[in-house]
Amino acid sequence: METFNKLTSMLLHALETREPTVDLLDSFVDHWKSITNYYIMTTDDSLPVKQTDIPWHLKQMLDILLYEEKELGVEQTGPCIEYMLQHKLLETLCTLGKAQVTVDPD
């Protein structure tokens, strides 16, 4: 039984060392940059946001924030939420969203 436990421990250790580590903040920032680059590079303002990659990037950012909250707990603020607050991402998203709304003259 002890040999089995040692083997299991070695296998788990090997898996942990092979598992790629992802820097959540880097990933979060990359998704945000993809969104902002879309607005910088796009020439077609008539394309609805739903037909772009923006919803996917926003979902990835949300998943990162939820994971960070789950790992750190509600009492701590993680680096991704700090980045979001310091760089006023929600305010920027609201501004971008308002710019895409067209007012019906009727």
Rank of each mutant, 00 (worst) to 15 (best):
C80A: 09
D30E: 14
L24S: 03
F28T: 08
L96P: 07
T36H: 01
T42Y: 01
M84Q: 13
L96C: 06
W32V: 12
Y38S: 03
I64T: 08
T52L: 08
H57C: 08
H31Q: 13
I64E: 03
D23G: 07
I81A: 11
K59F: 07
M41G: 01
L25S: 03
V101F: 02
T92S: 12
L72H: 10
T21Q: 11
Q86M: 07
C80R: 04
L65A: 04
G78A: 09
I54A: 04
V29T: 13
M61N: 02
K70A: 12
I54E: 01
K33G: 00
H87G: 01
Y67K: 15
L24G: 06
Q60A: 11
T92A: 10
E91C: 05
T36C: 03
T43V: 14
K50V: 06
C94I: 14
D26Y: 03
F28S: 04
I81F: 10
C80V: 04
Y38I: 02
K33S: 12
P55E: 07
L96G: 05
K70S: 12
L85M: 11
V22G: 02
D63V: 00
W56S: 15
I35Q: 03
E68T: 09
W32S: 10
L47P: 06
D53V: 00
D26V: 11
I35G: 08
C94N: 12
P48S: 11
V29D: 05
D53K: 06
K50G: 10
P48A: 11
E69P: 00
I35M: 07
L65N: 04
I54F: 02
E69C: 13
S46Y: 10
W56P: 00
Q60K: 15
V49A: 04
L65S: 03
I40P: 00
K70T: 12
D44S: 14
D26A: 10
T36F: 02
Q76T: 05
K50M: 10
K50A: 12
I81T: 09
K88Q: 15
I40S: 06
E82H: 10
L58N: 04
K59H: 11
T36N: 01
L90M: 11
L66D: 11
Q86V: 08
I81M: 15
L24T: 03
D53Q: 06
Q100L: 09
Y83L: 08
N37V: 00
K70H: 09
H87F: 07
W56L: 14
V74N: 08
S27M: 08
V74Q: 11
L72F: 08
A99P: 07
